[in-house]
């Protein structure tokens, strides 16, 4: 039963995956008046606040700053939210795991996917900003699924890794929010890359999210298509994350039940 290959068990438990995703979405907006509208309002309001802050206090020379900002925010926000909820997925679902056999990777996966669904909703916010700021809708937009896919795969990989490690080392829970804060400052979300001093710019080179966000901006903001090389590189980054996540998860999952 345990040796079933990944795809086979994914297929067998596809109903469960669906059910888990809809459960997450249901619980997320339960008892809020605006419900799903929050996925749309949240990025817009956040962008508004940040745009105000950065137009009056710090000034960056970026054309169409609101759009620049909301793209970075959407991608990084998805990554940080999805991996944070995935982190607790095994621990939260321990009661289920202890009573029925379920492939365990399904829990971090479903959490990342439900965040992904929310993020797709918030793309409407980007659309609204594009309309307001008169950005032309060009055919390059058809490439939009690519950066979304990169970010999704990358987040699944990180989510699996961190959910497995957290079971054994609960300290990760407390540390991760700090890591995310540092990570967000090391990602050009609200500032242009040009303000990063040349001697520390190399740090950005090791930040996969920087490439994904840049890819997205190229398509939406500058109406250009990144070249094949960049695309392949982004793919490699996200696949590498998944492979590492899966290997670590597979190694650690044997004793999950004894530690949850």
């Amino acid at each position: 039963m345990k040796n079933e290959c990944l795809w086979k068990s994914l297929y067998k438990y596809r109903f469960l995956l669906k059910e888990l995703i809809s459960r997450d979405l249901k619980i997320k907006y339960r008892r809020s008046f605006l419900g799903y509208l929050w996925s749309l309002m949240n990025p817009l309001l956040m962008m508004w606040v940040l745009t105000l802050v950065f137009s009056y206090i710090f000034r960056f020379d970026i054309p169409n700053y609101p759009l620049y900002l909301i793209i970075g925010q959407t991608i990084f926000g998805f990554f940080s939210e999805s991996t944070t909820v995935a982190m607790m997925s095994i621990i939260d679902n321990a009661p289920l795991l202890k009573k029925v056999y379920v492939p365990q990777f399904i829990f971090p996966l479903s959490r990342v996917l439900s965040s992904f669904v929310t993020m797709i909703f918030s793309l409407i916010a980007i659309l609204i900003v594009m309309l307001i700021t008169d950005v032309p809708f060009k055919l390059t937009l058809l490439a939009l699924p690519l950066p979304l896919l990169f970010t999704l795969l990358f987040s699944v990989g990180v989510g699996m890794l961190i959910s497995a490690v957290t079971v054994y080392l609960r300290d990760v829970m407390h540390l991760y929010s700090i890591v995310l804060t540092a990570w967000s400052f090391l990602t050009p979300i609200f500032y242009p890359i040009s303000i990063v001093p040349a001697n520390i710019r190399w740090v950005l080179q090791y930040n996969p999210l920087y490439y994904f966000i840049d890819y997205f901006r190229q398509i939406v903001l500058y109406n250009t298509l990144p070249n094949v090389q960049t695309t392949v590189f982004c793919f490699e980054l996200s696949i590498a994350a998944i492979v590492i996540g899966a290997i670590v998860f597979n190694k650690l999952q044997k004793n999950f039940l004894l530690y949850t």
Binding site: L20, R23, I27
Partner: peptide, 29 residues
């Protein structure tokens, strides 16, 4: 499997929702 109480229920969800969740755990659509 009905091992111990609540064979894989989510306490936050209603009985109706848990029927579907539990069914999915057992592999049913």
């Amino acid at each position: 499997p009905l091992i111990e109480l609540g064979a894989g229920f989510d306490p936050e969800l209603t009985a109706r929702e848990n029927i579907f969740l539990n069914g999915a755990v057992l592999g049913y659509s």
